[in-house]
Structures are given as structure tokens and as C-alpha cells.
Nucleic acid binder design. Structure first.
Lengths: 158, 158
DNA sequence: GTATGCTTACTCGGATACCACTTGTCCGAGTTCCATGGG
DNA sequence: CCCATGGAACTCGGACAAGTGGTATCCGAGTAAGCATAC
């Protein structure tokens, strides 16, 4: 049970795209080179963010990627959900209703089981924490040199 | 990114073992039949709980499984951690230090990156919620008929 | 009656196979910018 | 000077392969209870 690496990539790319908003769109080549990530696969993952309405992509010769909204309006939760498929961490399979234990008893199963309830509460706490932070927050928290280094790199590659 | 089904099984088994504490140890055959789960695989998962000190197993003819501690002293978090390997949901791979972005810049990387920090906070909220509930809580929340049904089944199978 | 050995029922640990998902690569199609060439 | 054409650079979407971890099964080894047997 681990979050996919793509979620981390997506968040870093969102922050970078936030800094380079005025130079948008940014090509996938530049993003992949910046983080030393496999270009093809990174592209595939960013497409998920595009479908979720978080990133916008523009085709063509000077095409590339940019934030679809302002960084203040993109929460970390949205990015994670888009990368992970939006599924719930815990999926109750109603094990208690299977087998001998579930036969014939009706009234016991109207309410969701306690295990499922606890899991949902924990998951909710997790989601709320992720939803409380935006890409703009991450940009503000980053060290001051980071943004400038990004722009310098632009000069290196053209 | 989904929690393994084994975690759900483990929690249900812990609750059941809590009810049947005075009939312990309970054989794996009985537990598997109760929930209609694959006996061999369930056994393998319960072994993880045994290694974690949550369950105790006794070999021999009348052997089986029982809670290693009282239900009040076993948190949901412990069970989940034992089943999932105790790993963290999000593992920061320090993507920012790879590639061109990480070359030559030293001072920026002393502190952990903001993304990692947000993830850790969210994960902590999740863990705290899971640690706040015990097996005893789950037993108390269950419908009243559940415990009796378990005992009746004992009579059915001997 | 007591001690010894056998059978039975259970757990433990390793080996193995299968399946789903993540990671990674490749290719054809479509879109836009730009340079080139003809009117 | 203006417009059409073609190439270059980029994204999109699908197909496919490799790696990893969860699910599931099987088997030999070890342990303890119960029973039978021998003394």
C-alpha cells in the first residue's frame, strides 16, 4: 500500500509550472530533463492531470503544458486523486456477510460495519489534510533559490 | 493505491477472537469457514499478526489463534501496520535533487521539501485516527446479535 | 497404574503460480509554428 | 508582398513489455493432545 511515484512527479511538475506560468506552455522535454524522469512515462502521467482539468496542454510546435487554473485553486488532494484514480484507500468487501456468519441474519447488516466506519474516518482526515494545501502553498514554502534556478535553466536550453 | 484485503480480514478476525476469548484458541478452519475466506491464505496473513505480537498461536492438536493482548490494548493502527508492512503511504524519492534541478545547489536541499511535509502531515492524521480506535471499540460497536451468532456456530461445528 | 509410543490435528515456514497494477517504451495520428517557394 | 506547401516540434491515444506486490495454493517440518499399548 504505497502511493505511486507518479503522484510525487505530478506535484513537482505543478509547482514548476506555477513558477513558469509566464513562460507557458512548457514542453515535456524540459520538465523531464529538469527532474531526470523518463520523458514518455511522465507525459502519460501528466495526461491524467490534463483529463482532470488540473493541467492544460497545447499541441503544436511551441506546445507544452501549463496550469489550467491559478495555483491557489489547485489543492494537493486534487492532484493526488487524479494520479491515483480517485479510489478510496480502504474498500469494504463486506466480509462479514459472506460465509456462515452472514447467513440468515438480516438486522445486523443494515448499518455499515464498525471497521468500515473507522477506516472512512481515518481516510477523511487524510483527505482533509491534503485538501487544505494548494500548489500556491507549496510554491511559497520552497526555498528562494528554486524559482530562479528554474529560469536559469531555461536560458541553458533555450 | 488501495489497502490490501488482508487488513480487513485481520480486523474482522481480531474482533471475532475478542468475542471468543474464553474459547481460545480458535482454529484457522473455523475462522475461514465463518467468513468464507481461503483458509491457507488467511493463515498466512494471521502469521503476520502473530509476528507483530498482536495474535498468539498455539500449535498442537487443540491449537489455534487468540489475541495476544486484551482488546483494549490493540489499536486498529497496529493491525493495519502489521498487515501492510508498516510502510509509509508516501515515500519521498527526492525527485527535486535529481536531474538538472539538483545540480550544484546545496542550501536549498537541507530542509525536506514542502511536498514531503504535506504528505507526512496528512499521513499522520490518518494514523492518529486509526490509533484512536481499538479492537474493543469495534466489538462494542457491533450489533448485539453478532457475538451470540458466533457462539452458536461453535455448537454447529463442534 | 504408569510410562512409552502412535495417531491426529493443528501451526510454521518456504516454494510456487497467478493476477492486477505500476512503471516504462514505442508508434501512428493530429495540431501548430515556421521556413520556403511560387504567384 | 501575400499565400500555399512542407517540415519540424509538440501532444494525444493506444498497444505492449517488464517489474512489483497482493492473492492463492501446496508441501514438509514441528508441536501438542488424545489414545493405545506395554510394563
Amino acid at each position: 500500500m504505497r502511493m505511486s511515484e507518479g503522484a510525487e512527479w505530478g506535484l513537482h511538475c505543478c509547482v514548476t509550472l506555477g513558477w513558469l506560468a509566464d513562460e507557458a506552455p512548457v514542453s515535456i522535454r524540459r520538465l523531464a530533463a529538469w527532474f531526470d524522469l523518463p520523458q514518455e512515462y511522465l507525459k502519460k502521467r501528466l495526461q491524467s492531470l490534463s483529463r482532470a482539468g488540473i493541467l492544460a496542454s497545447s499541441p503544436g510546435a511551441l506546445g507544452g503544458w501549463s496550469l489550467a487554473r491559478s495555483p491557489e485553486k489547485i489543492t494537493v488532494m486534487e492532484v493526488v486523486a487524479a494520479m491515483e484514480g480517485g479510489l478510496e484507500l480502504f474498500h469494504c468487501t463486506e466480509v462479514r456477510q459472506r460465509g456462515v456468519g452472514g447467513q440468515g441474519a438480516g438486522a445486523e447488516f443494515v448499518r455499515p460495519c464498525g471497521i468500515s466506519a473507522v477506516m472512512r474516518r481515518a481516510e477523511l482526515a487524510w483527505r482533509q489534510e491534503l485538501a487544505a494545501h494548494t500548489i500556491a502553498d507549496l510554491m511559497a514554502r520552497s526555498p528562494k533559490g528554486a524559482e530562479r534556478t528554474h529560469r536559469n535553466y531555461r536560458r541553458m536550453t533555450g
